[in-house]
Nucleic acid binder design. Sequence first.
DNA 1: TCCATTCGTTACAGTCACTGTAAACAGTAC
DNA 2: GTACTGTTTACAGTGACTGTAACGAATGGA
Lengths: 202, 202
Amino acid sequence: MREPETLRERRKRELRQQLSDTATVMFLERGFDAVRVADVARACGVTEKTVFNHFGSKEALLADRWDPQVEALSARLADTAPLDAALEVLGEELDFLVASARRHSWAEVRRFGELIRTTPALVAHHRAARDRLTEAAVEALATRSGATPDDPIVRITAAAVTGLWNVYALSLQRHQAKGAARAAREVRADLARAADALRQGL
Amino acid sequence: MREPETLRERRKRELRQQLSDTATVMFLERGFDAVRVADVARACGVTEKTVFNHFGSKEALLADRWDPQVEALSARLADTAPLDAALEVLGEELDFLVASARRHSWAEVRRFGELIRTTPALVAHHRAARDRLTEAAVEALATRSGATPDDPIVRITAAAVTGLWNVYALSLQRHQAKGAARAAREVRADLARAADALRQGL
DNA sequence: TCCATTCGTTACAGTCACTGTAAACAGTAC
DNA sequence: GTACTGTTTACAGTGACTGTAACGAATGGA
């Protein structure tokens, strides 16, 4: 079923990757605002316009983990209870973080989080991604339950589930000083407590 | 306790109001993107720079209802259970909408919502406001319960409560064609259902 | 192997939100 | 009246993002 990749497609994919990787490193080194899109373009030997042909905005250059998470959540929600689905996805995300910490360093991972948290434009981008997550949850929950995506129960469930990402982000920030493994454990515990609260009712 | 307002202060307040009102009308008439900040400035007999002295961004020019809602929610949460507090605030917001519909017209109110929903920059602004709401809820809940603002239970509660604004927005959109009074009633019902779901547990 | 089409890159010109600064110009306090 | 203070202005920038036309290189078919 999978067509062999044509040369044009490979070049495109590789350039895209190079742009994103280069930009991410530059952002981490100098800060998001201190890097101009033209800088990233020059570093990759292309025109500024080319960058915008590949990415819709400067923020989109940052290699973040949102798309995989949205996809993972959608997939899980098809056959798992909402809260469990969220906990599984976030658990995998923690695994990914710990693995990243091994590949690079925990300090690097922390700096990445810090960058997102302290850059207004990236915070906004982050919020947009969260909305995409909620929308995906609504979609999946509606499909599963046979309700319309307008159903208030579906909506509030999706919102509550997405709230766990809130807890995740803050808990991670809170426990990060304890090191990768320990932090991951604490975050898991916080998430479990939050999920229990939702299960039991407010 | 209240100092009499000096002339400078009055001028400032009035200009600010004029800028916001003028901009809002222009946005509704021509669309957000078709109005340049310089246009608003010119319409008010002032420089573009002056506009930015009063408002931090073009989006902030739009007269929205977020600040009062954030304040109202904070206040209620001090002495009311979270879900009830949210329902009361949103109920008052519906009253306000119905009153606005009487003052202007329901069509006008709908166009305002449409403007916000269809303009990406305003959607983003809206998301930022929602975060402020959540943050205010966290603050109030933590104070009330004696927990820290980092507490996962506090966080998830705040997120779930803020989720009701999600339901509100969508429910309003869904029922708007039925007219102000009827729509308000339906939205109230949807909110009550969503709140019950949270109370009972997911 | 040649040709036509397709598609990404480039050069270039432009828009517009937003910023910094210094000078002019109030209102305010004494 | 005079010094002080806060706001507006004129002006000159920055940088993200867009549209367009020309160019060149991969592609698919003859």
